[in-house]
Design a protein around this nucleic acid. Structure first.
Lengths: 96, 96
DNA sequence: TTAAACAAGTTTATAATATAAACCAAATTA
DNA sequence: TAATTTGGTTTATATTATAAACTTGTTTAA
């Protein structure tokens, strides 16, 4: 019981998947995230922008050869938010 | 990785809180659930109806003295859905 | 050398969802 | 018997998620 509010930015299937990946591997390119999550490009683009706007990830736009390449990296703020989200969820899931 | 889809009926803060309570205590009255979750009556009513329509809970309308009393009880289907939801979430949270 | 197909995203329109405000009926209290 | 409270439901609105349509530039094929 004692349900703490869940960060609505993380309580979203796709955004949570993205954050989960980046916690593991620190940074990843847009197409790779797309493959791993199975998301459409449009949806992923929107959700990445939200995470970026919140400061949970940084987005670096570079080039790979002459093609554009969007690199996503988790930030300390993102790591901490993820940690708190997981902690809050424990009370809902009967795990912690 | 390998993100399984999350049951959208359970991936909702309030519905998850309700299910979490009912997993613990099996059944509870509407006003009690309302207090524990801090939800408004309208919101809770809608979410309970959704859980009921999915067969995750049963709603029994009785009386307590002469006042109406809405009793919510988790079903086997609800218990199983909750279990699967928690299992699927493990992959997102790095816990299991 | 240009037309067609592809890559890597973004923008935008729509569908789905969550939420609270407004409402209703019955019971209790003043 | 009028006002208030209890126990909700209905409905209108705000928020969110999602995919379709689009853009920009690149590579491939004719």
């Amino acid at each position: 019981m004692n349900f703490k509010p869940l960060d609505p930015l993380l309580h979203s299937e796709l955004r949570l998947a993205v954050m989960s990946m980046l916690i593991d591997i620190e940074e990843a390119e847009f197409p790779y995230i797309r493959e791993q999550t199975g998301a459409t490009a449009g949806n992923l683009s929107v959700q990445i922008e939200k995470l970026s706007a919140a400061g949970y990830i940084e987005v670096e736009k570079t080039y790979k050869g002459r093609r554009p390449c969007t690199l996503c990296r988790i930030t300390p703020k993102g790591i901490e938010a993820f940690r708190q989200y997981v902690e809050a969820l424990q009370d809902y899931l009967h795990l912690g």
